[in-house]
């Protein structure tokens, strides 16, 4: 019998190791798996590499991980936003490493990891500072930069509903990086608003099939 449901966020993140690379879903405050990130904070793993679009704001989720010195390195497209004070403070003092990646390249590098590709060439960023140190080739008449896949140990994402096989549906724009991140990590942990019975999700509308999911935990809104 397959049952990927776990009882609590703490149980869902209990075995994340120091030094892990962790993908965290979300775009701004939309689709951030806040309770899973807080469970990771409580769990205490350190020296993390966090891959996420923004670098947190205020005092919650990723900002709290940074504040508590858990994040050695962050890979993201837009770390600077209203309230990203902890990231900015750590960045100024050199207490966090930043790898800046164009947003589409960030997403596609995770897709490449999930799809078993060795990388890809893209025109995005090819004539910018972000191509420094990377191979650039002219392909089909355009300068294109070679980008490597971005695999991870863990993905923490948020969906709306899941069944015990881990099939997922999402809600509005909270879907964002979730489906791609679910494919790119060795361990994919999902928080959902609601568990449903097997067969209740319309198979035509399942967005992330359960094969990409390892654990689901219900977090009441």
């Amino acid at each position: 019998m397959i049952d990927k449901r776990v009882a609590t966020p703490a149980e869902a993140v209990a075995d994340i190791a120091d030094g892990a690379t962790v993908l965290v879903g979300g775009f701004g405050n939309s689709g951030v798996p806040v309770e899973l990130v807080h469970a990771l904070l409580e769990q205490g793993a350190r020296d993390l590499t966090v891959v996420t679009n923004n670098a947190g704001s205020g005092e919650t989720d990723i900002a709290a991980l940074i504040r508590e010195h858990r994040v050695r390195r962050i890979i993201c497209s837009y770390p600077r936003s209203a309230g990203s004070v902890w990231f900015e403070q750590f960045w100024r003092t050199g207490d966090i490493e930043l790898e800046l990646v164009p947003q589409g390249t960030l997403s596609e590098r995770m897709r490449a990891a999930g799809a078993g590709l060795g990388g890809f060439f893209t025109p995005t960023g090819a004539d910018s500072l972000l191509a420094e140190g990377k191979e650039v080739r002219v392909l089909d008449g355009r300068r294109q930069v070679f980008e490597r896949p971005l695999p991870a140990d863990v993905a923490l994402i948020k969906a709306d509903r899941a069944d015990r096989w881990g099939n997922l549906v999402y809600r509005t724009a909270a879907r964002n990086f979730g489906p791609t991140m679910a494919t790119a990590a060795a361990l994919t942990v999902v928080q959902v608003r609601q568990f449903v019975e097997l067969g209740e999700l319309d198979p035509e509308a399942v967005v992330t099939p359960g094969i990409f999911v390892d654990r689901v935990v219900e977090v009441a809104p």
Partner: peptide, 27 residues
């Protein structure tokens, strides 16, 4: 809806005929 936002992180709406998709498809 705090999860239905635009690239500037401002709340928006969806028109009839609109659709949601994941980030890789958006890019």
């Amino acid at each position: 809806d705090p999860e239905l936002i635009n690239a500037g992180k401002q709340p928006v709406t969806l028109l009839p005929g609109g659709s949601f998709f994941h980030h890789t498809d958006a890019f």
